[in-house]
Design a protein around this nucleic acid. Structure first.
Lengths: 338, 338
DNA sequence: CTGTTAGCGCTTTCAA
DNA sequence: TTGAAAGCGCTAACAG
């Protein structure tokens, strides 16, 4: 019954190609795999049959048989942030060099969603995954939860577990930019920060603080606003700081959205205030504001994470390699006149 | 031999769960599928075994058996462009509502790459795909090439074939913005455009031209520069137009990068020049330039494309539905004083 | 160089 | 309500 449906609407299978070429399915498989041990005439007949039938190998069946999928998962927190879309491109670049596809998903910073996505990726037999962890609990990312599936964390380090990761020099960048403001003569530098529970938030604050200490300046806690998440909250916080009697002469912002909020506040103010912040952005030079930007290559984070993951995938048989960590450098750019 | 390895390092299979729960694999399958025809005690034993073994259903095997993958493909031309990352988020939103995953890839505007990616998606048995076509040849996207796999084109219409698509009101947006400039009193309006071979380029130029005609103004071909692709080329073209003796008093730009180039040129010039362009961008209001922006909801394009694809996937049995086309509206935003 | 056999992990079908 | 058999399309392992 249903003798391997040939001729019905369904897509042709290897058997169909084999029948059409007058060989066995194995020969077709070998030709498609570029196995050398196939005679030239057979190869040609197979390729002709493939062409004629419009045959396309079924990767799902292949994956099942081979035990891997040729895909890696990438889970980011916010694809709308150019930082993460760049990171994704970096990952794709490295992945495609190795013939791997990237299955990309977005968590919108929700840990529940992350957990579900990671589970699903594992279910789909990805060869490994790269995750920008949304929360501070990483239990569901631990080797135990993933049965040893290779994983690399990006932007934020593993918490309560061990894993490869690629970080940015958050501390160094913040320290350097803050030092620059101090060198410019600023003594009251406000701080607009993202939630301190986030690794980047904590590190960048550390850098800001360390720069003060190195310069022998006592930073003023009253000039610090943390837990900011978007442009409006940052703008409001900046406004509040700048309206106070002991207003800062400069502001340090821990990411592009907060910098944007600060820019709005400063614009509305009329009085010149120096700004420093993480993440370069388009037209920063055109604004005509004294801007000190901590920049870094987001693609590079993706590329390194991709490479690390691939190393891990290929080397997984060589026993438990200790977790690696790499840090992408930052550099300071200055826009406007200071 | 190798009696279905139980206990070795490999991930547990349904058989392992079945053995552990004292039932058959079928019962496990039914429980996991929420099939009601399973006794309560059996269900509980299965769930307990799943929990204990840390069992995770193999979606690859499931896909092979079911003939679909629960994934849809999304192919964009440039993920670094916020427009496309937004579009991707829109697609993901709709897809996840329907329990579908999105396999996202980037063509970097290269048709060859697109062809390969589309092939690969088909090989991976995606349930359908959404493509922002890179070139003007769409043969590899035709139903014949894809064996009737559902496809939706986004941003650019099908050429030489028929398919569902979601477009932006390129013509209307360009016409409206240009009319606005004319209403402001401008009579010499330069045009900075992307390659005319691109649908968006052609449509936006049509809109620009039509607005002139409606106003009874003869547009001047010498003020038109097309084929621009990035910020530097746009800046150079704008500079050249503005340096000429019969310089335009306003410029219309067909996309965000070209607008950026024009902004740089105008900034350097010192003389006020009105700018209009497609695609809203961050801080547009802060620049302090008279800016007329054609804006639209990129997420919405993704959502509509996703919904269209899902309709097509679900309704594919109901015979050949004619290709649909939907157009996302634009609206004009004005920044600065005009 | 080529083919046969077996089976990846799951679910549909049919029978109990 | 449950299970046994068969097979989705492919390829490793083993003949020949």
């Amino acid at each position: 019954m249903a003798q391997h449906r040939s001729g019905d609407g369904g897509a042709p299978t290897m058997r169909d190609v084999a029948a059409s070429a007058g060989v066995s399915a194995m020969t077709v498989s070998r030709v498609l795999k570029n196995d050398t041990r196939v005679s030239e005439p057979a190869r040609e007949r197979v390729l002709a049959a493939v062409e004629e039938l419009g045959y396309r190998r079924n990767e799902t069946a292949r994956s099942l048989r081979l035990g891997g999928s040729g895909m890696i998962g990438l889970v980011v927190t916010n694809l709308a942030n150019p930082f993460y879309s760049r990171l994704a491109l970096g990952v794709q670049e490295v992945a495609s060099e190795h013939g791997l596809r990237v299955l990309l998903s977005n968590t919108a910073e929700q840990v529940d969603k992350e957990r579900g996505l990671v589970e699903d990726l594992a279910s789909r037999q990805v060869d490994g995954m790269i995750v920008v962890p949304a929360g501070s609990s990483h239990r569901h990312l631990a080797p135990a939860a993933l049965r040893g599936m290779p994983i690399v964390l990006a932007s934020r380090p593993p918490a309560g577990m061990d894993a490869d990761c690629v970080l940015v020099d958050d501390f160094g960048g913040a320290e350097q930019a803050t030092a620059q403001l101090i060198a410019d003569g600023h003594r009251r530098i406000g701080f607009l920060g993202n939630p301190p529970a986030l690794y980047t938030g904590a590190e960048r604050f550390r850098g800001y603080w360390a720069a003060h200490e190195s310069a022998g300046i006592e930073p003023d806690e009253s000039q610090v606003r943390r837990g900011l998440t978007d442009v409006p909250t940052a703008e409001a916080a900046a406004r509040a700081l700048l309206d106070a009697p002991d207003a800062p002469t400069a502001l340090f912002c821990t990411n592009n959205r907060l910098t944007q909020g600060a820019i709005r506040a400063v614009r509305a103010l009329g009085r010149p205030v120096a700004l420093a912040g993480f993440d370069d952005f388009d037209l920063a030079d055109v604004l005509g504001l004294p801007l000190t930007i901590v920049s870094y290559d987001a693609d590079e984070i993706g590329r390194r994470a991709g490479q690390m993951l691939i190393d891990r995938i290929n080397g997984s048989s060589a026993g438990p390699i200790p977790a690696r960590r790499t840090v992408v450098p930052t550099h300071v750019i200055r826009y406007g006149t200071h």
